[in-house]
Nucleic acid binder design. Sequence first.
DNA 1: AAAGCATGTAAGTGAAGACTTACAGATGCC
DNA 2: GGCATCTGTAAGTCTTCACTTACATGCTTT
Lengths: 108, 108
Amino acid sequence: MTSEDLLAVLAAMGHGQRLRILAELAAGRMYVSELARRLGISRPLLYMHLERLEKAGLVLGNLELSESGKALKYFELAPFDLHLNIRTIRAALAADTDRHSDMQGNPR
Amino acid sequence: MTSEDLLAVLAAMGHGQRLRILAELAAGRMYVSELARRLGISRPLLYMHLERLEKAGLVLGNLELSESGKALKYFELAPFDLHLNIRTIRAALAADTDRHSDMQGNPR
DNA sequence: AAAGCATGTAAGTGAAGACTTACAGATGCC
DNA sequence: GGCATCTGTAAGTCTTCACTTACATGCTTT
């Protein structure tokens, strides 16, 4: 995990609304409009938050067709469990510089 | 831990410079000017970041007098280890509403 | 056809955050 | 005294973020 990944997660979570979105999705998958109604926020705003959460890998979006044929975009929680301590931070920062070195992934 | 506390930590950590500050302090306590030189950032900027980290409880500042009598503000890492998952998030949000109920801490 | 509900995006506004330059006060050393 | 080094803060700029309003599109049901 690079520091970029770590930062994406931290920044995504570091916001009240998005914390509430995650908590709401813990109850189960839900499509956007329904989620917006439950949280009492506007849909475009929710969209922005969901985008950010998805980029951080915390939620997963999926456009589906209901039985009646109506398009619904379902979001669900992605499983995550990050041990946030100084060790994790140092490892993430170290991973950045390591990307410059060769022979990673497929060393002979 | 309330969501306010959690958000303070997440928002404080969700920034590259501050992540680097924490990593640098992992090597040991250091005073502000020295830390600024090591990181290559301006002192006022570092100040702002340290303030934020301190409010989140991630670092600890202490103004001391050196042997020669010069004032130095030392910062050190506060031990932290946060398990970041959906359970923690829900617990934090739940703690918010619980603050309105009585008999917490010392229930008879 | 019209109304209802869904997705998706664009444009604009207002507030918060990140950063710089600058200045003031205090002490130690030459 | 004058220079170096440290702390602390104020003011100003600039960008990013959060949020609203509005509009275009598509399918369903009445």
